[in-house]
């Protein structure tokens, strides 16, 4: 029976069986931030469309973006963008056969998490100061 033969095959452990590693987290976050940036692209297009539509539309979108939820969303999108960009650099290195040793990959994964979060914090500190405080 085809069904019996199928169930006799060895199965790889389910996703939940594996313990978390930083390289695994970086891989999952690369995909998750990529999906999040899909929504970020719609936000960018909406912001540009509002600017092109006139002062009232621009004020409406600006007020949403300047609200606590808006600032939080912008912080999230900025981090997602920086993480995806920096982790993308790891992918470029791997394409060239570099940085694939487990120890190196673990180090660069930590580096990308720490650097993307730090840079996002710096960007918001400077940005909020540029507009004269939150």
């Amino acid at each position: 029976m085809a069904e019996g033969a199928q169930s006799a095959r060895p199965l790889s452990p389910h996703l939940q069986i594996w313990g978390w590693t930083v390289t695994m987290a970086a891989s999952i976050f690369h995909r998750a931030t990529g999906v999040a940036l899909y929504a970020g692209a719609a936000l960018l297009a909406s912001w540009l469309f509002a600017a092109a539509s006139g002062p009232e539309a621009f004020a409406f979108v600006s007020d949403i973006l300047a609200s606590p939820i808006g600032i939080f969303a912008l912080f999230g999108f900025t981090w997602a963008l920086l993480f995806h960009m920096m982790n993308g650099l790891r992918h470029f290195l791997w394409d060239r056969g570099l940085g694939l040793a487990p120890k190196t990959a673990t180090r660069t994964a930590w580096l990308v998490f720490i650097a993307s979060l730090s840079l996002t914090a710096v960007i918001f500190w400077v940005g909020l100061n540029m507009r004269g405080g939150a």
Binding site: Y38, L44, A45, F49, A51, A52
Partner: peptide, 21 residues
């Protein structure tokens, strides 16, 4: 459809800001 809509909306807006604004 989503990628094309986002791109078309953004490009139209950029054009509008540059020439019609």
């Amino acid at each position: 459809l989503f990628a094309l809509t986002v791109a078309a909306t953004a490009l139209w807006s950029i054009y509008q800001l540059a020439f019609a604004g």
